Amino acid sequence: MAPYRGAGRPEATYTIERLIDIAARDIGLSPFELRRRNLVAPSAMPWQTGFTFRYDCGDFPGNMEIARELSAFDAFEARRAEAAARGSCEALASPTPSKWPAALLATAVPTPPM
């Protein structure tokens, strides 16, 4: 986890993640599964994004599977039902935004001359 920084980033990330949730529901997949299917596989590296970034390493599907196991994802519906019986609410999210650290951006983007 990392803090959101910059104007509009939290709002843009929220909008993208909600659109993924809606698309998943529309095509009959879980939001987790739709995100998993769209992660860049290690075998596809290096991966040039549609923007200016290039991913040269990472195991995004593997990381998501570890998160699934550690969160007891498959038992979520039972936990949700137990929470509802107590008058409480339990939610689950599996967002997959990627953010470059500022230190990497400083080296990746040349500073214009003054």
Rank of each mutant, 00 (worst) to 15 (best):
A2R: 10
P97T: 07
R86P: 02
E33M: 11
F73Q: 02
V40I: 05
M45R: 05
Q48Y: 09
P95F: 08
A84I: 12
G58P: 03
E82A: 15
G28C: 10
W47K: 02
R35V: 00
S43L: 06
T13H: 12
G87Y: 13
G8Q: 15
A84N: 07
W100Q: 10
T49L: 10
F51K: 14
S88R: 13
A72N: 09
A41S: 13
E69N: 04
R36F: 11
N38W: 05
C89N: 14
A7M: 11
A78D: 09
A75C: 08
A12I: 06
W100L: 13
R79H: 11
M64C: 04
T15I: 01
A41I: 00
A102Y: 03
W47M: 10
A103Q: 09
G8L: 11
P46K: 10
R25W: 12
R54E: 11
A2T: 14
R18H: 07
D59Y: 05
R37S: 07
M64W: 01
L29V: 09
R54I: 12
W100S: 14
L70W: 09
P46A: 02
R25S: 08
T49Y: 14
E17G: 01
R68K: 05
F51D: 13
L104D: 12
P31V: 00
T52I: 13
I66H: 08
T49N: 07
W47Q: 07
G50N: 07
R18I: 07
D56W: 01
G28N: 06
D59F: 08
P112N: 01
Y14I: 00
A108N: 14
F76D: 00
P113H: 05
A23F: 12
S98Y: 08
M45G: 01
A85R: 15
E65T: 03
A93Q: 11
L39Y: 02
M1E: 13
A103Y: 01
N63Y: 05
A85H: 11
E11C: 05
S88W: 15
P31S: 03
F32V: 00
P3M: 09
A84Q: 14
N63W: 10
W47F: 14
V40R: 00
R18S: 10
P31L: 01
L39K: 01
E77I: 11
M45Y: 04
M45Q: 02
A67C: 11
A93C: 14
A83R: 10
C57K: 15
L104H: 07
P61F: 00
F51T: 10
S88F: 09
P112L: 14
Y55T: 05
F76A: 02
E33K: 06
M45N: 04
P112M: 02
R54V: 13
D59V: 04
I66F: 05
P110S: 11
F73W: 06
I27Q: 06
L34H: 09
D74W: 09
V40F: 04
D56Y: 10
E90N: 10
A85E: 14
L29K: 15
D21S: 04
A7F: 15
